[in-house]
Amino acid sequence: MNPDFIYKVLPLYKDAAVLTLQVGFIGIFLSVLIGLVCSLIRYYKVPFLTGAVAVYIEISRNTPLIIQLFFFYYGLPKIGFKMNAFVCGAVGLGFLGGSYMAEAFRSGLEAIAKVQIESACSLGLSGLQTMRYIIFPQAFALSFPAFMANVIFLLKETSVFSAISLMDLMFTAKDLIGIYSKTAESLFLLVVFYLIILLPVSLLGSYVERRLGRHGFGS
């Protein structure tokens, strides 16, 4: 290990980490949006759309992210739809994560007993009020562990962004190995930076999970 080298390339990793985080969080934000919409469509069994959502979820979950990214980055321009690598990475992550989030939210929604909803209805709450005050808060807490697992999974998936030449952490490490042949230092920094990104997310997740668990769930 060469400390001077590590010190020298640190800023490169820092920039790459910022980029990874940016794409990662935009992608996760997209996946939450897609997941919410899809899970509600499935929960309310909206005609036609339910089928479309089912097809999307199967495609999204049963193909690797790298192939989805190739499709968006190299395939779509062929039909006149061009995105830069940054947008492509975020959209790709959203496409993959959307299905995982949809399933996480759906399991939360479906875990709420029908009679809970009836009890809200019998108090005169409208469908929307029942969703907002009764179903949603409970479903959120119930699906939170799965949601958190997905966030961590998606952040780790960002490591394939280098395939569409996004200057992320993986790209930086591979680049430095190629130029300086300093494999040990480069990979060491790669591991450290991924841990720096993921450990706080992980810890925050367990903290929130504990807080939610304390708040009167289960009978």
Partner: peptide, 24 residues
């Protein structure tokens, strides 16, 4: 209901006041 069906994420007081507040 037989199974009470209080809302588990709300306190007893909130359970009682929810519908009078948001519905009525």
């Amino acid at each position: 209901f037989q199974s009470y069906e209080l809302f588990p994420h709300k306190t007893v007081l909130e359970n009682i006041t929810l519908a009078p507040l948001v519905v009525q």
